[in-house]
Amino acid sequence: MTSASSARDRVLGRVRRALADAPEAPEVTRDYLVSHTPDDPATVLDLLHENLADYRAGVHRSTRQHLPALIGELLTGHGARTVVVPPGLPGDWLAGSDARLRHDDGHLTPAELDSADAVVTGCALAVAETGTVVLDAGPGQGRRALTLIPDLHICVVDVAGQVVASLPQALPRLDPTRPTTWISGPSATSDIELDRVEGVHGPRTLEVVLVVE
């Protein structure tokens, strides 16, 4: 039985031997675009809206004032009676809903999450060109399991501070030490004859609310 450290030495040794005569590789040229979208907030927002909808997320625009009523309508519309609430979710977001709230204190089990109908969260960032919302487990988002198990995810995007056009603009704004989940539409599969079916294991319905002031 070989020890773990000797496997390490063997692999690294082989790598070094393999590269002994290899020529130096050139520096990376990054002449690709930082963004493919005109630098205009309204255009970027429209693109985000369009791309989210293209991947079958529900997309809604709302003012901050109207947000609780809209969330209430969405929950009722989907027949959601139990809602998971991550820590740090602004208190008034659910003021317009009479659904039963299950506040996550870190102890809800997977089975308990499975018995909830919906989850409402904010996000860290939204990327227009790919139609993506990014969650980083920050306040108002909670741990990753919360947005995975309930069948309906309502995600609120603060348009003024959270929308970027492109991936090269998104990555510098994210903290790699936090677990992140990038969500582009509801879960989907194309495994059966490459026929796209929405909704396999993640939430089958994704509703994104774009909050504009």
């Binding site: 991947y55 487990a137 936090r178 989940t181 990038w182 582009s184």
Partner: peptide
């Protein structure tokens, strides 16, 4: 796709 439905990134344990 412009982006696949889900991407998970994690660093060690949290």
């Amino acid at each position: 796709e412009r982006m696949n439905p889900y991407t998970t990134m994690w660093t060690g344990t949290t």
